[in-house]
Structures are given as structure tokens and as C-alpha cells.
Design a protein around this nucleic acid. Structure first.
Lengths: 131, 131, 131, 131
DNA sequence: GTGGTCTAGACCACG
DNA sequence: GTGGTCTAGACCACT
């Protein structure tokens, strides 16, 4: 797993970290039960503060992506990430709404937008076959 | 046009305002050339700070949604919002990426996601017929 | 509202703070919609770090006790704290279980235990009439 | 006696162990004078560290639940667990206080709370008849 | 050596 | 002036 952070971005570091790890899980580069580096190790590795890593881990734990196991350390949830429920979908709707509104203003139709999403999905499909 | 703000949201007020106006343009509730209230008027109307409204307007101007004339006031871009270019699409890809990654982790497939987007699009289609 | 912290206790400061504020809400010393001091103000007041106060506030926000309002600052949830749902009750069961087990070992019967709880409840009832 | 530990819980392992043993004593699955496995045996059995088991045993000894003889090994206190004294009850009051405060905030009344406690007590009563 | 807690000081975005 | 973020360094509990 390689982490690439943009320190110039206005997206908080811990959010970027969180998203990269989620992406790795989605791409199956990180498998259920697999161990993640300790807060300290990862912080030293990326060259950021351990509290920042910790915040990302706490967020991932909160979202059910990882577990903090007293013996095995930090591991990807062995049962997989909890499935999307109604609440999640409603949240997602709200978050996607402004992107779609802007895209419509800018003359994109539904097909173009869907194609764009499809393109992102394909990025994950490629990895699904083998690692 | 009615503005609904959530003062408890993590989303900054000015962003919410920006997005609502974009949404109104997308729904054609606000038509090209139509005038928007002045910074002062809108601020007083919603009961928020001048700076906040100003920041939203500057953002909208930046995105080409509106024009700000010293004399004629604030108007929706008469030529319509600039079309989505390559840069915009790439930005959009980046922003949508984490949502799709998380959705995949949570067991959603492409169809379900597309359906969700479709649902949002339909919200705009309904309005297209008439105002 | 007066805060009393025990810096010797093994209970984290932020937890003590959280519980004291919950207690104040339960006693109606803090009413729905009422404002709480800013992180900085409270931290300075109690003589602890602002991050510690912040952590307590985040916990309270998470539990639905307070809202962080962009204009009004930190306020007690105007709609009142969300009602106990099944999840909460199950959590509560789990947390109370060991106390009851130990009490039984120590020869207390159900009546004695209930009386003890009743005593705690009475502490809140007294305040309910007037402030 | 079967031990079930949750390695993902925030509750330290040794605390979980302590509580489970107390529960077993309360349920009379472990009787006064009965022998408990040695630190080594129990640690190997559950697959945890010696120190962890030892810490739990020390805590139980401290609370008067068990006796640790160099020769005879670890036994449940033959005289039964020391009865609840004033100190214990005061401690218990302090520990229950925050749970009750939160329950009140969440709209539970005394009856509901008592009923919940009663439900926990019933779990122990069932076992009292026979082993 | 792990994560959890606390402190302290700095900068920024927001309103 | 507010909360949010990041850094940094220290101590402790747990295993």
C-alpha cells in the first residue's frame, strides 16, 4: 500500500489518508483481516504526526472499515465493511447532489455523468481479478 | 428562490449558499440574465453576515455562474454557465472518486450507484418542463 | 454550571467533563438551546487544555446532547437529547451488568440495588421543580 | 466456566476477565472454595498473556473474590465475597451516577431504568436454583 | 512497543 | 473570536 498525500490541498491530511485507505480496501489491495501499520510506524513512514494518523484510523474505525484489535493491532475489518444502509444512501445522495447540479449547469447530461462514474468504477474492477 | 441553510452542518454557510444557487440555476428556477438580490439584501434576508454572502457570490462568479456588475448588480450569466471542459471533468473525477471507493467497500455495485445518481438527475428533469 | 474535576482519577478528564455536562442537562441546570462556553473559555476557566475540552464537546455532539452551531456557538440540543433507542438500552444493559454481578456477590439483593438507584434518581427529581 | 473475550472492545482484557469471573461467582457457577485454573493454565487456555491473567487475579484477590495460595493455588473465597459495606455502596453510587444522568437526558424514567436492572437481576436468579 | 490521554503552541477558515 | 487542523513531546495503561 502506497500513500500519496497532497500537503497543499485544502482537504485535511487525515481525510486524504482515510480516503486512500478506503480506496486500497475497495481495490482489494488491503484484504479483510490484513494488518495495517501502527500509528507510529505509518506516521514516521509518511512523515506526518502520529496524531494525524490516529485521527484517520479513528475515522476508519468509526466507519467500520477497520478494527483496533488488542492483540493483532490495527486490522481491516475481517467481516468486510458494513453494507450500505438507508442512512448511508441518503447521506450519499446529499453529498452527490451539488456535483450533479453543477454538472447540469455546465451542460452535461445524465449519460455523460454516468460514463464518468463508470470510468471510476472501472479503476476498481481491474484490480478485482488478481492482485 | 428560497434558501435553506443548516447552521449545524459541517459545510460552511457560504458553500451551502453557493450550492443552493447553483441548484436553482440547474432547475431553471433562476434563468440566464435574471437578477439576484444584492449582497446586502440577501444577507439581511437570510440573517447572515455580509462577508458570507459575498464569499458565495465571489465563488459563483469564479465558476462563471453569475456576473457581478458594479451598476447593474448581480445577474445569472446571460450566456449560461460555461460548459464542462477537460479540467472540470478531471476535477469532478477526483471529487467523486472517494465516494465511489466507499460505496464499493459497502457492497454497492455500479448499477446501484448509477441508479442513485439517476434519482438525483430526475429531480432536475421534473423542473425542466416549466417553471 | 460548575465543573468539578478529579485530576487524580483514572477516569480521563474529558470523560469527567462530558459526564458533568450530561448531569447538568439532566438536572435542567442547562436547558435546551442554552449556550455553553467556548472551548477556549471553558479550558481557561477550568485550567485545562483546550483540546481536552474539545474532545468532551465532540463526544457530547456525537451523543446528540449538544450542537455546534455556526452562529450561536455551542448550544444544548434545542430539541432535547435523542430518546433512548433499543441500541442504547442494550449498551446500557452491558454496562450495568458487571455492577450488578458484583453487587450480588457482595450479598446485595435486588431491592437494595433498586433503592440505591432510586437515591440517585431523587437527586435529579429535586431539581426538576425549579432552578 | 467459559470465558468470552472481545479483543476489539475498549474494555481492557483483564477487566473483561475479572468481570466474567465475578459473573460466574454471582451465578454460582463458581462456588466458594472451588479451584480456579492457574495463571499459566488459564493464559494458555484463552490464548492471552500471563501478565493479563495475573492482573485479573490480583484484582479479584484485591476485591476479596478469590484467595491466592502459593501451594493450594487459586480458589474462590471459601467464606464468600465480603459483604457490601458503606465504602462499596458509595463507590457504586458514583459509578452508576453518570449512567442514570444520561438515561434521564434520553427520556427514560425511573421505572424503565429499574425494569432494565430487574432484567439483569433475573439473569442471575435463574441460575440460583441449580448448577 | 502498542494505542490512549494530556498538554502546548501555531495557523487557518469561518462568520 | 470561533472551532478545525496539524505538529510535537510526554506519560501511562495494556499486552
Amino acid at each position: 500500500m502506497q500513500i500519496k498525500l497532497d500537503f497543499e490541498s485544502d482537504e485535511p491530511i487525515y481525510t486524504q489518508l482515510t480516503q486512500q485507505i478506503i480506496t486500497s480496501i475497495a481495490k482489494k489491495e488491503l484484504l479483510p483481516g490484513e494488518r495495517l501499520p501502527s500509528v507510529r510506524a505509518l506516521a514516521a513512514d509518511i512523515g506526518i504526526n502520529l496524531h494525524t494518523v490516529n485521527k484517520a484510523y479513528q475515522q476508519l474505525k468509526q466507519g467500520g472499515f477497520i478494527l483496533i484489535h488488542r492483540q493483532r493491532g490495527v486490522v481491516v475489518n475481517p467481516d468486510g465493511t458494513p453494507h450500505a444502509d438507508q442512512t448511508y444512501k441518503e447521506e450519499l445522495l446529499k453529498k452527490l447532489h451539488p456535483f450533479i447540479a453543477e454538472s447540469i449547469c455546465r451542460g452535461m447530461n445524465e449519460d455523460e455523468f454516468q460514463q464518468l462514474c463508470s470510468h471510476i468504477f472501472s479503476e476498481f474492477k481491474v484490480q478485482e481479478g488478481g492482485k
